[in-house]
Every structure is written in structure tokens, then in C-alpha cells.
């Protein structure tokens, strides 16, 4: 029963995204990728295969993250602003169902966008006979799990603050969490025990989005695929973080006057 509700809500988000021409952004970015690869071809890429792969993976990660943040943080506030939320809540669904269904929709849209971009990038690289190793499949899978975390976080922020603030905060945390985490590691040993505990708490609370980025291994040569336990741990982390973020959204949204 619930599954049908979530599916219907998620489908509505995808259709709305198509109607709003969000995926046109993906098409334009894809076109840019193809044109730029053509321009790069003018100069020849002999010996630059790794560099081209690195660029492709970086741009793919960047664009898909930006799209996921924008889709996730804008969705709920727009439903409220355009008053399309009322007919939805008039149906026999709870506010938690609504949040879960909508977040799943955001995830679906970001996955579609990511896979479209990945396909176009792959097409462009294939034109240059640039090949990837099998770990690329794991890269795609891990990145899709990372998008789940980002979407969960984006929806949570959008229920807590204005859409602009939510997207800004989401960008800062998603792009800054790696840097913050590394700074904590560097400073940890020279800190007092109390501060070390604070560092641990901050690190555990931060979304570890960089864990889902296997780009470094996918781009450079002869890196083995990551063990299955790692993929399993990433999936578990994704599930826990998604549940936490959705719970936070629900705590705020369940009593929010509309």
C-alpha cells in the first residue's frame, strides 16, 4: 500500500520535473560535454586520456551534485508556495508519507539526470577511445548512493529554512564536508581531549559524501574494485543517513502550519 503511495508521489515529482524542464538543464549540460569533447579533440588528446577521464568524472560529479541539491531543496517549498500541497494532503496519506514520497521522487530525478550525463560523457569519451576499468560500474553505483544522501539532506534543510538558505547550506555542507573532515584530522592530535570529542561528534554528524566518490580509483590505472563489504557499508550509511534526514524533516514538517 505504502509502496504504491510512494511510487505515485515520486512519479509526480519526476513528471513535474519534466514539465518544469529541469531535465533540459541536463540536456544542455550534455550538449556542452559533447561540444567540449569535440573542441578538445581539435587539439588531440594523445597521452591525455587520464586527464580527460579525470575531467569527465569531476564534471559528472559536480553537475549531478548541483542538480540534486537544487531539485531537493526547492521541491517542498514550491509545493507550499503554489498551494499544490493541500490536494495532496487531502488524500489518505500522512505527512511522513509525503516527505518520503517526495524525497524518493527527488532521488529518481537526480538519478535520471546523473545517468543521462554519465551516458553522454561515456559517449564523448568513447569517441576518443578512452576506456574505463570495471571499477567504473562501482563508481556509478556509489555515486547514486551518494545522491540519496544529498537529496535527503536537501529535503531536510528545505523544511527547516527558506529555499535559498537551504540550497546554500546544502552546497556548503556537501562540498565542504570533506575539507572540514580533513582539517579535523590534521588538528586532532594537537587538541585537548574535550576538543577531540567535539571533533568526533562533528565528524560523525557531517554527511560523508566523499566516501561515495570512487572517481580517483576509476580514473587512474590499476586500482582494484572496492571490496563488497565496503559497498555494503556505504549502502548502510546511505540508509541510516537518509532515515535520519527524513526523520528530521518529518519532526519539523509534522507540526508545521500550512
Amino acid at each position: 500500500m505504502k509502496a504504491r503511495v510512494y511510487k505515485a508521489l515520486a512519479k509526480a515529482v519526476v513528471l513535474e520535473s519534466i514539465r518544469r524542464k529541469d531535465l533540459w538543464v541536463v540536456a544542455i549540460l550534455g550538449f556542452l560535454i559533447l561540444v567540449s569533447s569535440g573542441a578538445l579533440g581539435l587539439f588531440g588528446i594523445g597521452g591525455l586520456e587520464i586527464f580527460v577521464k579525470d575531467l569527465a568524472v569531476s564534471v559528472l560529479g559536480l553537475f549531478s551534485t548541483i542538480l540534486a541539491v537544487l531539485i531537493a531543496t526547492r521541491m517542498m517549498p514550491e509545493e507550499i508556495k503554489q498551494r499544490t500541497l493541500y490536494p495532496l494532503l487531502a488524500r489518505p496519506i500522512t505527512r511522513l508519507d509525503l516527505i518520503i514520497g517526495k524525497t524518493l521522487g527527488a532521488i529518481a530525478v537526480s538519478w535520471i539526470a546523473f545517468l543521462l550525463l554519465a551516458a553522454l560523457t561515456g559517449l564523448a569519451l568513447a569517441g576518443f577511445h578512452v576506456t574505463f576499468e570495471p571499477i567504473m560500474a562501482q563508481y556509478l553505483l556509489a555515486k547514486m548512493m551518494g545522491l540519496v544522501v544529498i537529496c535527503g539532506l536537501g529535503v531536510a534543510f528545505s523544511t527547516l529554512m527558506t529555499p535559498s538558505a537551504a540550497s546554500t547550506m546544502c552546497f556548503v555542507i556537501v562540498f565542504g564536508s570533506t575539507m572540514i573532515s580533513r582539517a579535523l584530522v590534521m588538528a586532532y592530535e594537537s587538541c585537548s581531549p574535550l576538543l577531540q570529542w567535539v571533533f568526533k561528534l562533528i565528524d560523525w554528524a557531517l554527511p560523508q559524501v566523499s566516501l561515495f566518490d570512487l572517481g580517483g580509483r576509476a580514473v587512474y590505472m590499476h586500482w582494484s574494485p572496492v571490496p563488497m563489504w565496503v559497498m555494503g557499508a556505504l549502502a548502510l550509511y546511505m540508509a541510516v543517513y537518509f532515515a535520519g534526514a527524513t526523520g528530521l524533516s518529518w519532526l519539523k514538517f509534522r507540526r508545521q502550519p500550512l
Partner: peptide, 12 residues
């Protein structure tokens, strides 16, 4: 790739 495009455009 977009960065590459800008690189390429700069050179072009």
C-alpha cells in the same frame, strides 16, 4: 569536460 571546453576556447 566543460572545463576542457573553456580551456579549448581560451586557446582557440
Amino acid at each position: 569536460m566543460a572545463v576542457a571546453a573553456i580551456c579549448a576556447c581560451a586557446v582557440a
